[in-house]
Write a protein that binds this DNA or RNA. Sequence first.
DNA 1: CGCATAGTTGAGCTATTTCAACATCAGTGG
DNA 2: CCACTGATGTTGAAATAGCTCAACTATGCG
Lengths: 214, 214
Amino acid sequence: MEDLRKIPLLSELSEDQLKKVLSIATLKKYPKGKVIFTPSQKGEFFFILKKGKVKVFKTAKGKEQILKVFSKPAIFGEAASFTGSYFPAWAESLEESEVLVIPRKEFLNLLREDPEIGMKLLAVMAQRLMHLTGVIENLSLKDALSKVSSYILTLYGEMGEEITFRTNIAAMELGLTKETVSRMLSKLKEMGIIEKNRNSIKIKDLKALKELSI
Amino acid sequence: MEDLRKIPLLSELSEDQLKKVLSIATLKKYPKGKVIFTPSQKGEFFFILKKGKVKVFKTAKGKEQILKVFSKPAIFGEAASFTGSYFPAWAESLEESEVLVIPRKEFLNLLREDPEIGMKLLAVMAQRLMHLTGVIENLSLKDALSKVSSYILTLYGEMGEEITFRTNIAAMELGLTKETVSRMLSKLKEMGIIEKNRNSIKIKDLKALKELSI
DNA sequence: CGCATAGTTGAGCTATTTCAACATCAGTGG
DNA sequence: CCACTGATGTTGAAATAGCTCAACTATGCG
């Protein structure tokens, strides 16, 4: 429950309000690879990721483009559950996950009761917008090496730290194939910019990486 | 002034409120090709397009990707002026335009005074999110012919209608070159799906076009 | 232990870009 | 009113980034 306090939208709630939310919410457990919502569903529910990892993505013609991966406690599906329209994307668990599901009606009640929550939601949506413009910039304006470089930087915590890196997830986020991502990683390694193990990388030359990520 | 009422955010305002907004706002005129804001500016102002046409876009490495073109009265730059952070993109007039500029402070006051306006803004942001997910879908999952086909459909009003079509704008919205867009148009013409003049097209086979746009 | 999943590497392919040359049009100034 | 100029669009040929396909390796999970 304390994890949930870290979510901007919920941090604002009083103890009582949060309890109320939790009493309304249903806890759902999704094993790895389960669909949480699809574009053919209307936003009748609002989702809070409590534990696990979820990808939100578009698909067409057998291809898939990730919009965002949630791996920390966060809300998702908020736009559609606000408007009540169809979800603009798919959501699927990437690992075993726990999700709190709140009916749209209750979600709207919360908003109505406390305008401060509406403001928080605005802030979240503004963040989402910025994130998506970043995705678009990546997709449209950068070449493969820049994409991978900037992607690594988004994962980067502190110098010398081991960064878990999933090639195929990266590929789906960046609009590349896993082969291309793999090749770019090899290239970065050759250039002495990163070190590479099977599931993780380590940044050796942050400055050069930043340079490439533009 | 009545045009402004058509903008969702403002339609909600009382006569007095709207007058107040207009008294706060500064009317700015931009000739064609003028920059309205850039990513190096913080969202100190909120913009209302009154007349004209404005493109909001990202650029890098001499390339340019349009996020959205506004051609009817609308608000823009709302996310950054809500959070006060840097604009995530550029805005530039595509033709001579009139823009109402409102200081962030006053904009936030409006939100504070009337929660209903906050709700409207949420709706607008939700729309923007859906739009951007659509842009991403286009960029990442579709080939050139599909992109152009679906783009034409977004412009489409009623059957047999002449549709103004600007090849280079289309290209910048679709993440293609003008040459490719031109070639795709020729292809669609060859296929008997559209008719084509210099600055406009006409849909001859809507069903086929929809088929291609997937 | 075995099998499905994830990653690597090479080779050839192809959609789109790039470059170049040309055509057309709209607006401007004489 | 016409000539000039810059912007916009068209078409062809060549270049290329990234994809597809294929074969192989490593891994981790049941």
